[in-house]
Design a protein around this nucleic acid. Structure first.
Lengths: 184, 184
DNA sequence: TAGATTGTTAATCGATTAACAATC
DNA sequence: TAGATTGTTAATCGATTAACAATC
């Protein structure tokens, strides 16, 4: 099963040249006159993105965002399994979310010391987010996926990706207001 | 209260030239030797993004993603208030989420005909998403914020913004795997 | 007025696209 | 072999940055 940069481009709304340039970046393995082997391509891209090995995640904050991430089916398929959830609210501790039971944040450091955790999902309100990030930093956490609606201050060693849903909502709002105008 | 492109650039990690170019796009109103009036700047940007008037939203799908959007505090502050939630699951109909009660999707067209709805948030599983989008299209909906993890086919008249959380997770995963490598 | 900082044009840089020899 | 399609270099395009006259 093969695919050409031409067809890949059509499906992804990209120029075929762009496709070839991009694939080349992670080591060309196409064949002239033939195209790319789909299975090999998928494997290479997966490896490139680190999807070839599991990445255990824990989620801090068992509110609606934390729950949504824990339940997102495609993450689990791709190896991003949530292995524990934490909350500081006593009322949420003990609650079942999917097949996990919410733990108290007091247990956080202990948990991190005992388990391999690749990614910490930060799904707490804006107020407590920076403090929690500093705490995670002290506990040796290296990668954080932040859903708190602010940009967090962190050291060079930490990798923090911020998800700001409002950015995408603002784009929608902007395009709504300017629809029908001549582009440019 | 004023601010210069210099300081704005420092705060936003942008080149001051970039800042000036960008602000100019929506009509320059800075003053030489002085900078930009912060209040005026905020108002102009707000207007540009359509934040000067409320945008009633409804959410389809009362699962964890739908609930998270309904509760996201900054949306409400910015005028994106959720005015109704729908689900096709009888068990969820009648449930309270914040101060809303989940309605059955059977009432959707009726609701849309009777109320001003600027944005429909699509927070249903991937399987039903395209079908629901077509239904919304027939009901005259013009703007959709899609959280279903697939790109939806839609007519030119419809504005559909896709939120794919996994994109951001893949970026995190990629950077994790390639950390410490010499950039470029 | 002198100093500061914009609006705007010009220069630079990087990213996208086109072209084509290499080769399967 | 002939046709197709890659890898790769060159050309184009757009976006970022620098520069500076205008002016508050």
């Amino acid at each position: 099963m093969q695919i050409s940069s031409q067809e890949l481009g059509e499906r992804l709304n990209q120029n075929p040249s762009q496709i070839r340039q991009d694939i080349r970046c992670f080591g060309g393995f196409g064949r002239q006159g033939y195209g790319y082997n789909v299975a090999a391509l998928k494997e290479h891209i997966g490896k490139m993105l680190g999807l070839d090995e599991p990445h255990p995640m824990i989620i801090i904050g068992a509110g609606s965002i934390g729950s949504a991430v824990a339940r997102y089916p495609s993450f689990i398929r791709e190896g991003f399994a949530t292995v524990a959830m934490f909350d500081r609210d006593e009322n949420k501790v003990g609650m079942a979310i999917g097949d996990l039971t919410v733990r108290h944040t007091d247990e956080l450091e202990e948990y991190l010391a005992a388990h391999k955790v690749d990614i910490v999902v930060l799904a707490v309100p804006a107020q407590g987010a920076q403090e929690m990030l500093d705490r995670l930093s002290r506990a040796g956490v290296k990668s954080v996926w932040n859903f708190a609606p602010l940009d967090l201050v962190h050291s060079e060693e930490m990798l923090v990706i911020n998800v700001h849903l409002s950015d995408s909502l603002h784009i929608l709002s902007y395009k709504m207001s300017h629809r029908g105008e001549v582009p440019q």
